[in-house]
Amino acid sequence: MSDTTSTGSGAATPTRRQLIVGLVRYGMFIALALWLVAMSLASEYFLTPTNILNVMRQAAPVIIIGVGMTFVMATAGIDLSVGSTVALVSVLTAGWLALGLPAWVVLPLVLAVGAAVGMANGFIITLGVPAFVVTLAGLTSIRGFAFVYSDGYATPITDPVMIWIGRGDILGVNTPFAISIAVAVLGWFLLNRTRFGLHALATGGREEAARVMGLAINRIKILVYAMTGALAALAGIVVSARLSNGSPNSGVMLELEVIAATVLGGTSLFGGRATIAGTVVGALLIYFVRNGLNLLGVNPYWVQVVTGIILVVAVLMNTVLNQKVESWARAAGEDES
Protein backbone atom coordinates (compact mmCIF):
# COMPACT_ATOMS: atom_id res chain seq x y z
CA MET A 1 0.00 0.00 0.00
CA SER A 2 2.72 2.38 0.94
CA ASP A 3 6.33 2.96 0.06
CA THR A 4 7.32 4.71 3.27
CA THR A 5 7.75 1.60 5.44
CA SER A 6 11.18 0.63 4.19
CA THR A 7 13.07 1.36 7.41
CA GLY A 8 14.44 -1.40 9.61
CA SER A 9 12.22 -0.65 12.61
CA GLY A 10 9.16 -0.77 10.35
CA ALA A 11 9.86 -4.45 9.70
CA ALA A 12 10.46 -5.43 13.32
CA THR A 13 7.47 -3.70 14.90
CA PRO A 14 4.74 -5.46 12.89
CA THR A 15 6.30 -8.81 13.83
CA ARG A 16 6.21 -8.00 17.51
CA ARG A 17 2.70 -6.65 17.08
CA GLN A 18 1.56 -9.87 15.42
CA LEU A 19 3.14 -11.81 18.26
CA ILE A 20 1.20 -9.87 20.91
CA VAL A 21 -2.08 -10.14 18.98
CA GLY A 22 -1.46 -13.86 18.57
CA LEU A 23 -0.66 -14.30 22.27
CA VAL A 24 -3.97 -12.76 23.26
CA ARG A 25 -6.02 -14.39 20.51
CA TYR A 26 -4.67 -17.86 21.16
CA GLY A 27 -4.36 -17.35 24.91
CA MET A 28 -6.39 -20.44 25.77
CA PHE A 29 -4.32 -22.69 23.48
CA ILE A 30 -1.20 -21.41 25.15
CA ALA A 31 -2.73 -21.76 28.61
CA LEU A 32 -3.62 -25.38 27.87
CA ALA A 33 -0.12 -26.12 26.57
CA LEU A 34 1.52 -24.49 29.60
CA TRP A 35 -0.75 -26.37 31.97
CA LEU A 36 0.06 -29.69 30.27
CA VAL A 37 3.80 -29.01 30.55
CA ALA A 38 3.56 -27.86 34.17
CA MET A 39 1.47 -30.85 35.20
CA SER A 40 3.81 -33.28 33.42
CA LEU A 41 6.60 -31.96 35.62
CA ALA A 42 4.49 -31.91 38.79
CA SER A 43 2.96 -35.37 38.63
CA GLU A 44 4.40 -38.59 37.26
CA TYR A 45 0.91 -39.97 36.64
CA PHE A 46 -0.24 -37.03 34.51
CA LEU A 47 1.55 -37.68 31.23
CA THR A 48 0.54 -41.32 30.86
CA PRO A 49 -1.60 -42.54 27.96
CA THR A 50 -4.15 -43.95 30.41
CA ASN A 51 -4.59 -40.63 32.18
CA ILE A 52 -4.67 -38.52 29.01
CA LEU A 53 -7.20 -40.78 27.28
CA ASN A 54 -9.25 -40.90 30.46
CA VAL A 55 -9.48 -37.09 30.63
CA MET A 56 -10.42 -36.97 26.96
CA ARG A 57 -13.18 -39.48 27.57
CA GLN A 58 -14.49 -37.32 30.41
CA ALA A 59 -14.39 -34.21 28.23
CA ALA A 60 -16.18 -35.90 25.29
CA PRO A 61 -19.79 -35.03 26.24
CA VAL A 62 -18.87 -31.38 26.80
CA ILE A 63 -17.05 -31.22 23.44
CA ILE A 64 -19.99 -32.85 21.64
CA ILE A 65 -22.59 -30.44 23.05
CA GLY A 66 -20.11 -27.55 22.91
CA VAL A 67 -20.03 -27.79 19.11
CA GLY A 68 -23.77 -27.15 19.06
CA MET A 69 -23.50 -24.43 21.71
CA THR A 70 -20.88 -22.68 19.56
CA PHE A 71 -23.46 -22.39 16.76
CA VAL A 72 -26.15 -21.23 19.18
CA MET A 73 -23.84 -18.55 20.57
CA ALA A 74 -22.82 -17.58 17.03
CA THR A 75 -26.45 -16.53 16.56
CA ALA A 76 -26.27 -14.61 19.88
CA GLY A 77 -28.37 -17.26 21.62
CA ILE A 78 -27.86 -19.60 24.55
CA ASP A 79 -29.16 -23.07 25.40
CA LEU A 80 -29.53 -23.93 29.09
CA SER A 81 -31.59 -27.04 28.43
CA VAL A 82 -28.84 -29.35 27.14
CA GLY A 83 -28.05 -30.99 30.51
CA SER A 84 -31.71 -31.89 30.96
CA THR A 85 -31.89 -33.26 27.41
CA VAL A 86 -28.97 -35.53 28.36
CA ALA A 87 -31.05 -36.83 31.29
CA LEU A 88 -34.18 -37.34 29.18
CA VAL A 89 -32.24 -39.20 26.48
CA SER A 90 -30.47 -41.24 29.15
CA VAL A 91 -33.70 -42.59 30.68
CA LEU A 92 -35.38 -43.05 27.28
CA THR A 93 -32.41 -44.99 25.91
CA ALA A 94 -32.23 -47.28 28.95
CA GLY A 95 -36.01 -47.65 29.09
CA TRP A 96 -36.50 -48.48 25.42
CA LEU A 97 -33.55 -50.89 25.38
CA ALA A 98 -35.02 -52.60 28.46
CA LEU A 99 -38.27 -53.03 26.50
CA GLY A 100 -36.26 -55.15 24.08
CA LEU A 101 -35.97 -52.65 21.22
CA PRO A 102 -32.67 -53.05 19.33
CA ALA A 103 -30.02 -50.32 19.58
CA TRP A 104 -30.31 -49.48 15.87
CA VAL A 105 -33.91 -48.44 16.49
CA VAL A 106 -33.40 -46.76 19.87
CA LEU A 107 -30.38 -44.63 19.02
CA PRO A 108 -31.83 -42.84 15.95
CA LEU A 109 -35.06 -42.41 17.88
CA VAL A 110 -33.46 -40.68 20.87
CA LEU A 111 -31.39 -38.48 18.54
CA ALA A 112 -34.67 -37.46 16.91
CA VAL A 113 -36.13 -36.71 20.35
CA GLY A 114 -33.16 -34.44 21.08
CA ALA A 115 -33.53 -32.67 17.73
CA ALA A 116 -37.28 -32.23 18.33
CA VAL A 117 -36.67 -30.74 21.78
CA GLY A 118 -34.15 -28.31 20.26
CA MET A 119 -36.48 -27.48 17.41
CA ALA A 120 -39.25 -26.65 19.89
CA ASN A 121 -36.82 -24.38 21.79
CA GLY A 122 -35.80 -22.68 18.56
CA PHE A 123 -39.37 -22.24 17.38
CA ILE A 124 -40.46 -20.54 20.62
CA ILE A 125 -37.37 -18.32 20.47
CA THR A 126 -38.33 -17.17 16.96
CA LEU A 127 -41.69 -16.09 18.38
CA GLY A 128 -39.77 -13.49 20.35
CA VAL A 129 -39.23 -15.10 23.77
CA PRO A 130 -35.60 -14.62 24.93
CA ALA A 131 -33.48 -17.76 24.48
CA PHE A 132 -32.41 -17.59 28.12
CA VAL A 133 -36.03 -17.88 29.31
CA VAL A 134 -37.10 -20.52 26.80
CA THR A 135 -34.20 -22.83 27.54
CA LEU A 136 -34.35 -22.16 31.30
CA ALA A 137 -37.94 -23.42 31.14
CA GLY A 138 -36.56 -26.35 29.13
CA LEU A 139 -33.95 -27.00 31.81
CA THR A 140 -36.59 -27.66 34.46
CA SER A 141 -39.38 -29.21 32.41
CA ILE A 142 -37.24 -31.59 30.32
CA ARG A 143 -35.59 -33.00 33.43
CA GLY A 144 -39.09 -33.19 34.89
CA PHE A 145 -40.09 -35.40 31.95
CA ALA A 146 -37.05 -37.58 32.62
CA PHE A 147 -38.15 -38.07 36.24
CA VAL A 148 -41.75 -38.71 35.27
CA TYR A 149 -40.72 -41.32 32.69
CA SER A 150 -38.24 -43.10 34.98
CA ASP A 151 -40.11 -42.54 38.23
CA GLY A 152 -36.76 -41.37 39.57
CA TYR A 153 -35.05 -44.74 39.15
CA ALA A 154 -31.91 -45.52 37.18
CA THR A 155 -32.13 -48.39 34.67
CA PRO A 156 -29.08 -50.55 33.87
CA ILE A 157 -27.90 -50.82 30.26
CA THR A 158 -26.45 -54.09 28.98
CA ASP A 159 -26.77 -53.66 25.22
CA PRO A 160 -23.45 -54.55 23.51
CA VAL A 161 -23.60 -51.58 21.12
CA MET A 162 -23.98 -49.24 24.09
CA ILE A 163 -21.16 -50.96 25.95
CA TRP A 164 -18.92 -50.39 22.91
CA ILE A 165 -19.94 -46.71 22.68
CA GLY A 166 -19.15 -46.23 26.35
CA ARG A 167 -16.06 -48.37 26.79
CA GLY A 168 -14.79 -49.53 23.42
CA ASP A 169 -12.20 -47.90 21.25
CA ILE A 170 -11.50 -47.00 17.63
CA LEU A 171 -7.84 -47.37 16.57
CA GLY A 172 -6.70 -47.08 20.17
CA VAL A 173 -8.78 -44.00 20.93
CA ASN A 174 -11.72 -44.52 23.26
CA THR A 175 -15.06 -44.31 21.46
CA PRO A 176 -16.45 -41.25 23.34
CA PHE A 177 -13.43 -39.12 22.45
CA ALA A 178 -13.40 -40.42 18.87
CA ILE A 179 -17.07 -39.46 18.52
CA SER A 180 -16.42 -36.01 19.97
CA ILE A 181 -13.55 -35.36 17.55
CA ALA A 182 -15.67 -36.47 14.60
CA VAL A 183 -18.42 -34.08 15.74
CA ALA A 184 -15.89 -31.26 16.18
CA VAL A 185 -14.43 -31.74 12.68
CA LEU A 186 -17.89 -31.76 11.10
CA GLY A 187 -18.85 -28.73 13.19
CA TRP A 188 -15.73 -26.85 12.12
CA PHE A 189 -16.52 -27.58 8.49
CA LEU A 190 -20.14 -26.50 8.87
CA LEU A 191 -19.25 -23.26 10.66
CA ASN A 192 -16.37 -22.15 8.45
CA ARG A 193 -17.01 -23.60 5.02
CA THR A 194 -20.77 -23.66 4.45
CA ARG A 195 -23.50 -21.12 3.87
CA PHE A 196 -25.29 -22.29 7.03
CA GLY A 197 -22.34 -21.44 9.29
CA LEU A 198 -21.81 -18.07 7.63
CA HIS A 199 -25.49 -17.19 7.98
CA ALA A 200 -25.48 -18.24 11.64
CA LEU A 201 -22.57 -15.87 12.27
CA ALA A 202 -24.27 -13.08 10.31
CA THR A 203 -27.50 -13.55 12.27
CA GLY A 204 -25.68 -13.16 15.57
CA GLY A 205 -23.31 -10.48 14.30
CA ARG A 206 -26.07 -8.06 13.33
CA GLU A 207 -29.53 -9.47 12.94
CA GLU A 208 -31.00 -6.42 11.21
CA ALA A 209 -28.31 -6.49 8.51
CA ALA A 210 -28.87 -10.22 8.02
CA ARG A 211 -32.59 -9.56 7.69
CA VAL A 212 -32.32 -6.88 5.01
CA MET A 213 -29.87 -9.09 3.13
CA GLY A 214 -32.72 -11.58 2.96
CA LEU A 215 -31.30 -14.35 5.18
CA ALA A 216 -33.83 -16.85 6.56
CA ILE A 217 -33.17 -15.87 10.16
CA ASN A 218 -35.92 -17.90 11.80
CA ARG A 219 -34.93 -21.04 9.93
CA ILE A 220 -31.29 -20.55 10.94
CA LYS A 221 -32.23 -20.13 14.60
CA ILE A 222 -34.48 -23.18 14.66
CA LEU A 223 -31.73 -25.22 12.97
CA VAL A 224 -28.97 -24.28 15.44
CA TYR A 225 -31.16 -25.23 18.42
CA ALA A 226 -32.29 -28.45 16.72
CA MET A 227 -28.66 -29.32 16.02
CA THR A 228 -27.70 -28.61 19.63
CA GLY A 229 -30.60 -30.73 20.87
CA ALA A 230 -29.49 -33.63 18.67
CA LEU A 231 -25.90 -33.26 19.91
CA ALA A 232 -27.12 -33.16 23.52
CA ALA A 233 -28.92 -36.44 22.75
CA LEU A 234 -25.69 -37.87 21.33
CA ALA A 235 -23.88 -36.80 24.48
CA GLY A 236 -26.70 -38.38 26.50
CA ILE A 237 -26.09 -41.68 24.69
CA VAL A 238 -22.35 -41.45 25.40
CA VAL A 239 -22.84 -40.57 29.08
CA SER A 240 -25.35 -43.40 29.67
CA ALA A 241 -23.17 -45.85 27.77
CA ARG A 242 -20.12 -44.98 29.83
CA LEU A 243 -22.00 -45.39 33.11
CA SER A 244 -24.02 -48.37 31.78
CA ASN A 245 -27.22 -46.93 33.09
CA GLY A 246 -29.92 -44.47 32.26
CA SER A 247 -30.52 -42.00 35.05
CA PRO A 248 -32.72 -38.90 35.37
CA ASN A 249 -29.87 -37.38 37.38
CA SER A 250 -27.33 -37.50 34.58
CA GLY A 251 -26.11 -34.25 33.05
CA VAL A 252 -26.82 -32.09 36.10
CA MET A 253 -24.98 -28.75 35.65
CA LEU A 254 -23.62 -30.01 32.34
CA GLU A 255 -25.11 -26.97 30.53
CA LEU A 256 -22.92 -24.69 32.61
CA GLU A 257 -19.77 -26.68 31.81
CA VAL A 258 -20.63 -26.57 28.11
CA ILE A 259 -21.20 -22.81 28.20
CA ALA A 260 -17.98 -22.35 30.19
CA ALA A 261 -15.99 -24.40 27.66
CA THR A 262 -17.48 -22.50 24.71
CA VAL A 263 -16.80 -19.09 26.23
CA LEU A 264 -13.32 -20.15 27.41
CA GLY A 265 -12.53 -21.03 23.81
CA GLY A 266 -13.24 -17.51 22.60
CA THR A 267 -16.78 -17.70 21.24
CA SER A 268 -18.63 -14.46 21.99
CA LEU A 269 -21.73 -14.61 24.18
CA PHE A 270 -23.06 -11.71 22.12
CA GLY A 271 -22.95 -13.50 18.78
CA GLY A 272 -21.07 -13.07 15.53
CA ARG A 273 -17.79 -14.61 16.66
CA ALA A 274 -17.42 -18.34 17.14
CA THR A 275 -14.67 -20.94 17.09
CA ILE A 276 -15.03 -24.72 17.22
CA ALA A 277 -11.32 -25.33 17.89
CA GLY A 278 -11.59 -22.91 20.80
CA THR A 279 -14.52 -24.84 22.25
CA VAL A 280 -12.58 -28.11 22.07
CA VAL A 281 -9.60 -26.48 23.79
CA GLY A 282 -11.89 -24.88 26.38
CA ALA A 283 -13.42 -28.25 27.26
CA LEU A 284 -10.02 -29.95 27.44
CA LEU A 285 -8.64 -27.14 29.61
CA ILE A 286 -11.49 -27.48 32.13
CA TYR A 287 -11.01 -31.25 32.40
CA PHE A 288 -7.20 -31.21 32.43
CA VAL A 289 -7.20 -28.59 35.19
CA ARG A 290 -9.61 -30.69 37.22
CA ASN A 291 -7.57 -33.83 36.57
CA GLY A 292 -4.26 -32.14 37.40
CA LEU A 293 -5.51 -30.70 40.65
CA ASN A 294 -6.95 -34.10 41.58
CA LEU A 295 -3.63 -35.76 40.92
CA LEU A 296 -1.91 -33.17 43.12
CA GLY A 297 -4.33 -34.04 45.89
CA VAL A 298 -5.99 -30.63 45.96
CA ASN A 299 -9.29 -30.50 47.81
CA PRO A 300 -11.95 -31.10 45.10
CA TYR A 301 -13.96 -28.13 46.33
CA TRP A 302 -11.08 -25.89 45.39
CA VAL A 303 -11.26 -27.28 41.87
CA GLN A 304 -14.64 -25.60 41.40
CA VAL A 305 -13.24 -22.31 42.66
CA VAL A 306 -10.28 -22.51 40.29
CA THR A 307 -12.53 -23.36 37.33
CA GLY A 308 -14.59 -20.26 38.04
CA ILE A 309 -11.54 -18.02 38.25
CA ILE A 310 -10.17 -19.38 34.97
CA LEU A 311 -13.50 -18.64 33.32
CA VAL A 312 -13.53 -15.00 34.40
CA VAL A 313 -9.91 -14.46 33.38
CA ALA A 314 -10.55 -16.09 30.01
CA VAL A 315 -13.61 -13.98 29.27
CA LEU A 316 -11.67 -10.90 30.27
CA MET A 317 -8.96 -11.87 27.78
CA ASN A 318 -11.40 -12.76 25.03
CA THR A 319 -13.48 -9.62 25.24
CA VAL A 320 -11.78 -6.63 26.79
CA LEU A 321 -8.12 -7.40 26.21
CA ASN A 322 -8.58 -8.95 22.78
CA GLN A 323 -10.53 -5.96 21.52
CA LYS A 324 -8.04 -3.49 22.93
CA VAL A 325 -5.04 -5.29 21.51
CA GLU A 326 -6.60 -5.76 18.08
CA SER A 327 -7.67 -2.15 17.73
CA TRP A 328 -4.27 -1.06 19.00
CA ALA A 329 -2.56 -3.24 16.39
CA ARG A 330 -4.89 -1.90 13.72
CA ALA A 331 -4.24 1.72 14.68
CA ALA A 332 -0.49 1.10 14.71
CA GLY A 333 -0.78 -0.59 11.33
CA GLU A 334 -2.67 2.35 9.86
CA ASP A 335 -0.09 4.82 11.14
CA GLU A 336 2.56 3.06 9.13
CA SER A 337 0.69 2.78 5.86
Binding site: L201, A202, G205, A209, A210, V212, M213, G214, L215, G272
Partner: peptide, 21 residues
Protein backbone atom coordinates in the same frame (compact mmCIF):
# COMPACT_ATOMS: atom_id res chain seq x y z
CA UNK B 1 -29.02 1.75 4.14
CA UNK B 2 -27.98 4.72 6.21
CA UNK B 3 -26.21 2.44 8.70
CA UNK B 4 -24.86 0.39 5.72
CA UNK B 5 -26.42 -2.86 7.09
CA UNK B 6 -23.06 -4.59 7.32
CA UNK B 7 -22.20 -7.40 9.75
CA UNK B 8 -19.20 -6.06 11.73
CA UNK B 9 -17.42 -9.37 12.42
CA UNK B 10 -17.70 -10.70 8.87
CA UNK B 11 -15.04 -9.83 6.33
CA UNK B 12 -15.48 -7.37 3.49
CA UNK B 13 -15.91 -10.18 0.96
CA UNK B 14 -18.32 -12.09 3.21
CA UNK B 15 -20.47 -8.98 3.59
CA UNK B 16 -20.54 -8.27 -0.13
CA UNK B 17 -21.73 -11.77 -0.96
CA UNK B 18 -23.93 -12.31 2.10
CA UNK B 19 -27.07 -14.11 0.98
CA UNK B 20 -25.69 -14.52 -2.56
CA UNK B 21 -22.58 -16.55 -1.88
Amino acid sequence: YQDFALVPDLTVAQNIFLGRE
